[in-house]
Amino acid sequence: MTEQALALRATGVRMEYRDPATRERLTAIERMDIEIPEGEFVSIVGPSGCGKSTFLKIVNGLLPATEGEIEIKHSKGGSDHAMVFQDSSLFPWYSVQRNVAYGLACRGVKRKEAFARALPFIKLVGLEGFESKYPYQLSGGMQQRANLARALTVDPELLLMDEPFAALDAQTRELMQVELIRIWSEAQKTVLFITHQIDEAIFLSDRVIVMSARPGRILADITIELPRPRDLDIKRTPRFVEYEEQIWRLISKQLSVGPEAAA
């Protein structure tokens, strides 16, 4: 496979902001250059505060970058991109079905049609039978399933995921990782996934991009050559652990000296 079509190209993205307290100009992201071919699953890991979520917001158009350019493959029928947000980003006053149909409503699709088009995605993420429930009636894992379905419904070229499992307990998190792999292979999407969990990044991705501490820049771009389909047992294979150690060494050097850095 050479010269595949790209789903995302970020060139020279730089992000500065003014600290509201000290009025100092700070650099959140020094420079980011990323190319993601269509259909690839790419994760960005890095120490907290390295600007990985900021980068995702820039790609999503929620924040303007100070410098640089973002190009995303234009979608013919659906959206160019859609975001799976962190926890509690469902509208608490809407049912699951209405939440999932929200992206379509934003595109001017009539309520009835949007509801109908949401159904297969509700089924895909395994929330069949919960269509009329409100978010508070769902567990954290189920809420994130709905969150994922909401993004998939608009048929995006690029799926952005901002630490979607960060608030889940360890077991639910692993289960959701397996689920995400299943859904990803069915939905055939390009994914840019942000996490601070190294094993999560390796387990899910074709490539893991490691970012430095603030100001963020790319330390390494590691291709994960683990066979697919993957299941949770792969996390205990020597190859997987090697990747974990490689990435952990890169990140731990970035952490300031303290009890956490000693591990």
Binding site: N60, G61, L62, S79, A82, M83, F85, S89, F91, Y102, G103, A105, C106, R107, V154
Partner: peptide, 8 residues
């Protein structure tokens, strides 16, 4: 942010 992200 969700509304903005979906282009509401």
């Amino acid at each position: 942010d969700v509304a903005k992200s979906f282009g509401a």
